[in-house]
């Protein structure tokens, strides 16, 4: 791109436009083959339902939310999105290995905050994201990305409000990142 980005420490990521085209083609073929888009948070939902079902089966049966996802024939873990998410993990592993980014466990954070702050922030962010994804009927990949690509109105709404909120509150959390 331009000369400023050619920093010494920048790892060899592929060009974002090129990555975007690849992802666009992948979404297209996912729709062509399966008739639906990509997703990610659905796998966690399956994991939650499975865990709660194992710990307290009577609770899940009477519960209006869990009972939607439980059938006695199939474990909720044998769902499309669970396999897809395992694939995402493997794909990340593959790319990380190829570009030499797999290292020991580490925490990436802004020099202005401590490791602990970053981990607490990550946990809070995760809780909020998980909670919100249920109301949003999907996360960035399921609702915003695949939803908008299939021209679902809800997908567009999620995309606009997700990134819009990000910009609106970014200032208050700038210490976490820059």
């Amino acid at each position: 791109m331009d000369s400023i980005t050619k920093e010494k420490h920048i790892p060899k990521y592929i060009n974002p436009y090129f990555g975007g085209v690849l992802l666009g083609i992948l979404i297209l073929f996912t729709f062509y083959i399966t008739g639906r888009g990509l997703g990610a948070s659905g796998a966690i939902k399956s994991a939650v339902v499975t865990t709660v079902d194992k710990v307290a089966p009577t609770h899940t049966e009477s519960h209006t939310f869990y009972s939607k996802f439980i059938s006695r024939d199939n474990s909720p873990m044998s769902s499309w999105l669970v396999f897809e998410s395992i694939g995402v993990l493997l794909g990340g592993l593959l790319s990380g290995a190829l570009f030499g980014r797999i290292k020991k466990l580490r925490v990436e954070h802004s020099p202005k905050i401590t490791k602990k702050t970053r981990l607490i922030a990550a946990a809070i962010g995760g809780i909020l994201f998980g909670f919100g994804s249920q109301f949003g009927r999907g996360c960035t990949s399921g609702a915003a990305l695949s939803g908008t690509a299939s021209s679902s109105f809800g997908g567009l709404i999620v995309m606009l409000f997700l990134f819009g909120t990000g910009y609106a509150v970014a200032y208050f959390f700038r210490k976490l990142w820059i």
Binding site: A121, A122, A123, I124, G125, G126, I127, L128, F129, G130, F131, G132, S133, Q134, F135, G136, R137, C139, T140, A143, A144, I157, V158, M159, L160, F161, L162, F163, G164, T165, G166, A168, V169, A170, F173, L176, W177
Partner: peptide, 13 residues
């Protein structure tokens, strides 16, 4: 949901 996710996104990264 999208607003909650937006906040979660900026905090969690």
């Amino acid at each position: 949901g999208a607003i909650i996710m937006g906040v979660g996104f900026i905090i969690g990264g």
